[in-house]
Write a protein that binds this DNA or RNA. Structure first.
Length: 471
DNA sequence: TAGCTCGTTGGACAA
DNA sequence: TTTGTCCAACGAGCT
């Protein structure tokens, strides 16, 4: 008698190696690999446009590594799963857990409904180093400060699971009930999607190559170098981690094999921040929409669509901010320090609600991740856990002078400022007329005047934050 | 249990 | 030019 068919439902685990649920499926029988584009449950956090581009290419790659047997579906997962189980006499489904609140609710319902039909679901941890419910204070409460969360809650409790090799004896089968990949309609009609795709290599092998390249060119300078957006000292692994082309466990152990020094420790603590975000989300399902600190509900945000649009389009007239926003639009990615600079600018200098920034990032980032994105926006706005103090307002001029010393980053994304001398590159409005003329810059014509005065808006923000304290 | 120290990412200003 | 101090307040963890 032939082996039973086990469905493995790929979600944020789009890889063959270190995939606990896929390995379990392969151990039990022949594997029917599927992907379901859920169009019913995500609500306002339906995947953004850049993530969909990433997903499309990632699925195409995954399908190849499964011998073309990956089957695509679209719609409501439960009836799709029930139909497949009936069609192929399937009694077991495996998946790796997802942690967005809507996914947690959905998966629970699906598990219950399938179990009522005599179908067993086996779920695994394939995307976090520590399960969010396993990390807590001695009294059982969740941590709200990163350092004790990571040092005591994570590091002192258990080492992360060691990564698994790809299953050697994984026999896959196909179904004729799936859709072609193109039918999922993930790619935008705009050429923008192709532009984004040009900046990345997709798939599991590409993720491994990215990690290896980072180890060679970035790791030994990571701790300091990670602050310089024009330098190759950051890993750029975030989109691969998000969609699961690589697991944090694989990254963790690959880096530690290099020998633990302060650079490796620092990078691992960044993985720790990812875990912290997931812990916050797990314990606060409203994190993407509600201020973690309720006193911020009274904050006097400005409703100013023109300013928001200028920020989104990289036309604020503040070079460091515009460079970041244009990097995002062009590549689907933004260097982490620049994310903090543009975030601080939107929230504190423009006075716009952090949720507007969260939404824009959600749509434009190839690594858009519900936990990281909402936790980080709350952090920069000051309303989150372990948040930046209200008086910590990034000055985009100073930040540029410190971290884009030779101006390479700004000049890359704002070619109209390419000939500005370093002295005025980060504040062209302060340049003498002759300097602007020689650089070919006419403010208000080929580069905007600043939409806000940095000093005055900083003081207004401090006053607004102080008003919270009194109320 | 009380008291103490510390906390991812900064800026402005005075000396 | 560089360095020290202040800008809050509070949770976590240590002694």
């Amino acid at each position: 008698m032939s082996q039973p068919i086990i469905i493995h439902w790929f979600r944020h685990d789009q890889r063959v190696s270190d995939n606990p649920a896929l390995t379990a499926a392969a151990d039990l029988g022949r594997v029917l690999p599927i992907y379901i584009h859920d169009t019913i449950h995500p609500g306002m956090h339906a995947m953004g446009a850049a993530s969909r581009v990433w997903l499309h290419h990632s699925l195409a790659d995954l399908s190849m590594s499964l011998g073309g047997d990956l089957a695509y579906f679209m719609g409501d997962p439960l009836p799709i799963l029930l139909d497949l189980c009936q069609q192929h006499q399937v009694k077991t489904i495996t998946w790796n857990r997802c942690y967005a609140p809507w996914q947690v609710t959905r998966d629970k319902q699906i598990k219950t409904a399938l179990s009522a039909q005599g179908i067993t679901v086996m779920s695994f941890n394939g995307s976090l180093l520590w399960e969010p419910w396993e990390v807590h204070k001695d009294n059982g409460d969740p941590y709200r400060v990163f350092t004790p969360f990571y040092r005591k809650g994570c590091l002192q409790v258990a080492a992360p699971r060691e990564p698994l090799l790809a299953p050697t004896d994984c026999e896959t089968v196909s179904t004729d009930r799936g859709l072609p990949l193109a039918a999922l309609n993930l790619l935008p009609s705009l050429p923008w999607g192709e532009e984004i795709a040009r900046h990345w290599d997709f798939g599991e092998q590409a993720a491994q190559r990215r990690l290896e390249a980072f180890i060679v060119e970035g790791l030994s300078s990571y701790k300091e170098g990670r602050n310089y957006p024009a330098k190759p000292y950051v890993s750029r692994l975030s989109p691969y981690l998000h969609m699961g082309q690589i697991s944090p466990n694989q990254v963790w152990y690959m880096l530690r094999d290099e020998g633990v020094d302060s650079n490796v420790d620092h990078f691992c603590s960044e993985l720790g921040w990812r875990e912290f975000s997931y812990s916050l989300l797990y314990h606060n399902p409203d994190l993407p929409t509600q201020n973690l600190q309720a006193k911020f509900d009274a904050f006097p945000w400005q409703d100013n669509p023109e300013r928001l649009i200028a920020w989104q389009q990289g036309k604020t007239g503040i070079p460091m901010v515009d460079a970041g926003m244009r990097e995002l639009w062009k590549t689907g990615y933004m260097h982490n320090r620049v994310r903090m600079i543009v975030g601080s600018f939107l929230v504190k200098n423009l006075g716009v609600d952090w949720r507007e920034g969260e939404r824009w990032f959600w749509d434009c980032l190839v690594d858009a991740d519900i936990a990281n994105n909402s936790a980080s926006w709350q952090w920069i706005a000051g309303c989150g856990a372990d948040a930046a103090p209200y008086f910590r307002i990034f000055n985009p001029v100073t930040q540029g002078e410190k971290f884009d010393v030779d101006g390479a980053y700004v000049r890359q994304y704002i070619p109209e400022l390419a000939h500005m001398p370093d002295k005025y590159l980060f504040q062209p409005w302060a340049a003498p007329r002759l300097v602007l003329q020689e650089a070919g810059v006419t403010l208000g014509t080929n580069y905007p005047q600043p939409i806000v005065d940095l000093k005055a808006s900083r003081e207004a923000a401090l006053a607004a934050f102080a008003s919270l304290k009194e109320s």
